[in-house]
């Protein structure tokens, strides 16, 4: 093992320029992938925030006493899809309308009688905020005797559904394309390293080195380069994120630690696989 590590580091020392080049190539390939990842992460974030506004409002029959509603509220909160259900009384509805609908302030002030019904506002848990689940919950709400009508903006939620599907498909297709390009570029760079050392490999074989012995330092070296490249890519992504966040004032999110670790791990994996295939091909050919 000691020998493998020493031989792996020898390349960094002996061909610093080519080593730096491969690390840089890996870094920039993963940086592009990382930037795309950031866009996806932030898009998902934005979608989630929009989704949070998905809400079902059940309007109650005028004059419904509070007791049955309180019991009904408990039932509604027990639905598996429901995150929270809030009772809004007629007076609260009017107060809210006065605060929010400034243009109608005068009209609302001069009312003799409160025309607004009481309601129950239902928020769904994440993962249930699509047309199918929203409709199902709305259906069940109508079953309560004190519910007059249910509103939830069907069109709007259907659009959200479609947007979500489209964003998912684009993320997968473009993400895979970027990943493939990164793998090809990184593979080519690593191949150069192998070719540069073909004379050395030939000499190793001449003195009786097994293929495994020749291969191991390359694998370690490839994985290390990938690891280093991945780390640089995350640093570059962070720099890009910081600039955008600061000057464009959109409150973007950065990768979580887990996501960053996945990108670095992906770098190490490509380095490892790239080395394994390049060395393997070279050893089979000569």
């Amino acid at each position: 093992m000691n020998l493998v590590v020493r031989e792996a580091f020898r390349t960094f020392k002996r061909a610093p320029l080519l080593s730096a080049l491969s690390v840089t190539t890996i870094a920039f390939s993963l940086f592009v992938l990382g930037l795309f990842g950031l866009v996806v992460v932030n898009l998902q974030d934005a979608l989630r925030r929009v989704e949070e506004r998905v809400e079902i409002v059940a309007y109650l029959l005028p004059g419904t006493p509070i007791e049955p509603v309180t019991i009904g509220l408990k039932d509604i909160e027990a639905f598996p899809e429901v995150q929270a259900a809030t009772y809004v009384s007629e007076d609260q509805a009017l107060a809210r309308a006065r605060a929010e609908l400034v243009e109608f302030r005068d009209v609302l002030r001069e009312l003799e009688r409160n025309p607004l019904p009481a309601s129950v506002e239902v928020k769904l848990k994440p993962g249930f905020r699509d047309t199918e689940h929203v409709s199902a919950v709305a259906e069940r709400l109508l079953g309560f005797g004190f519910v007059d009508d249910v509103r939830f903006g069907r069109d709007w939620i259907e659009k959200l559904d479609r947007l979500r599907q489209l964003a998912g498909a684009v993320a997968i297709v473009v993400g895979v394309a970027f990943a493939v390009v990164a793998v090809i570029i990184i593979g080519t760079t690593i191949r150069m390293t192998v070719l540069q050392r073909s004379r050395e490999i030939a000499i190793m074989r001449l003195v009786g080195a097994t293929d495994g012995f020749i291969r191991r330092p390359f694998l370690l070296q490839g994985a290390l380069k990938g690891l280093l490249g991945g780390t640089v890519a995350i640093a570059l992504s962070f720099a890009a994120y910081a600039v955008v966040d600061r000057y464009l004032e959109i409150h973007a999110t950065f990768f979580s630690y887990e996501q960053a670790a996945v990108i670095i791990g992906f770098g190490a994996l490509i380095g490892l696989i790239g080395s394994a295939t390049s060395v393997g091909r070279h050893l089979r050919r000569v």
Binding site: R199, A202, I203, R205, L206, V207, G208, T210
Partner: peptide, 17 residues
Amino acid sequence: PLLRRRLGIVFQDFRLL
């Protein structure tokens, strides 16, 4: 490789690292 370890080989161009 096992065979080559029992042979000694030298060439015109030395082939040193």
